[in-house]
């Protein structure tokens, strides 16, 4: 197959269908509606189901139901909608159901606006709903990665029996770039835990109830072991010119695109800059950060938020070097120029 020039929001749906997703439940919200619209266009064609639910809460619970059936199922929304879905995600995490949730972030709090922000980091990466859980979080920065990561998201969801988030923003969703799509997946394993509506699977129970404190504690310990395993195996990041870097820029999603240009410009001006771009926000590239902190002068974390990922960077750096933060909010995307100026000032200081 040749490359196609497509929007990120389109790439993520066609990528999901190639990954074998045949069921989608969602509620319209700007700027994620195009994902639902593209799913509505393609899923019925391939024998799948698209259903517009009555609410975000219903849609995540429909996802919970379909996931109980061992099929690849997804939903997508934007920040306020994700807040509503958190109950269902907690249940899915507790019942260990694989499913994929896409969050095309917008500005908050409250109704905020529909411009891109990255202020959902805490509610997505730190669990978000009630209980001791976390979900793997993938952060694409291109249309190609929208397609690649949604497929990876389904694989991780099934491998670890967990909800997985794809965390993105309006720019990555709206942008068109060449995408090379993979091959369709057509054979799927039968899971020994799922319900297929037959005699072989009927002994299975999908539940997050553990009445006895000891049992619930053991269940939670099991979840924590799973998260530790995810941390050990699934960290993904891009290392861009870090080898001899003195200042490490960090950002994800659209911000990392801006930072890449900033690094190029800084290098042109003789500043040894590099970019560490997390592709997974949980698990977070803690080891890589700790290792860099031993030898670089500074970190500069850039986010379209009040500074949420920067907390995780500080934990990983653990005081070994200064960690600076530059943030924009309200839907403003930091420009290459402003980050460049800020970085230069930091290096002079």
């Amino acid at each position: 197959m040749g490359k196609l020039l497509v929007k990120g929001n389109d790439a993520i749906v066609r990528g999901a269908i190639l990954a074998g997703c045949r069921v989608y439940f969602g509620y319209p919200i700007t700027p994620a509606s195009e994902i639902a619209e593209t799913a509505a266009k393609y899923l019925p064609k391939v024998g799948g189901t698209f259903l517009q639910a009555e609410s975000e809460i219903a849609s995540i619970n429909m996802v919970y139901g379909a996931a109980s059936g061992g099929v690849r199922v997804m939903t997508a929304s934007s920040s306020p909608g994700i807040s509503l879905k958190q109950e269902g995600v907690s249940y899915a995490a507790g019942a260990e159901l694989p499913c994929v949730i896409v969050d095309v972030m917008r500005g908050g709090p409250g109704l905020g606006n529909i411009a891109p922000e990255q202020s959902d980091y805490n509610q997505i990466v730190k669990g978000g709903g009630h209980g001791n859980y976390k979900c793997p979080v993938l952060a694409p920065y291109s249309a190609q990665e929208m397609s690649d990561f949604i497929q990876l998201a389904f694989d991780l969801a099934e491998k670890y029996r967990t909800p997985v988030y794809v965390l993105t923003d309006g720019y990555i969703g709206q942008m068109m770039e060449p995408v090379e799509f993979g091959e369709p997946k057509t054979d799927f394993p039968r899971f020994d835990w799922a319900l297929y509506g037959d005699a072989e699977s009927k002994q299975n129970l999908i539940s997050s109830i553990y009445l006895e404190p000891d049992e619930l504690e053991e269940h939670n310990r099991k979840l924590q072991r799973k998260y530790a395993e995810i941390e050990a195996n699934e960290v993904r990041f891009e290392d861009f010119m870090l080898e001899d870097a003195e200042i490490v820029l960090m950002g994800y999603g659209i911000v990392s695109r801006v930072l890449k240009t900033v690094v190029e410009k800084l290098r042109e001006e003789g500043v040894k800059a590099g970019l560490l771009r997390p592709k997974t926000l949980f698990p977070f590239p803690k080891k890589k950060i700790a290792e860099l902190a031993q030898r670089v002068k500074k970190f500069l974390v850039v986010e379209m938020s009040n500074g949420q990922m920067v907390d995780d960077v500080r934990l990983a750096v653990n005081g070994k070097c200064p960690v600076e933060f530059y943030g924009r909010m309200g839907g403003n995307v930091p420009t290459m120029k402003e980050v460049l100026e800020h970085s230069k000032k930091l290096m002079e200081a």
Binding site: V23, T49, A53, M62, Y64, G65, G69
Partner: peptide, 11 residues
Amino acid sequence: PAVATGIKRAH
């Protein structure tokens, strides 16, 4: 009813 919808649509 939402969970029922999900599993019924899947199977």
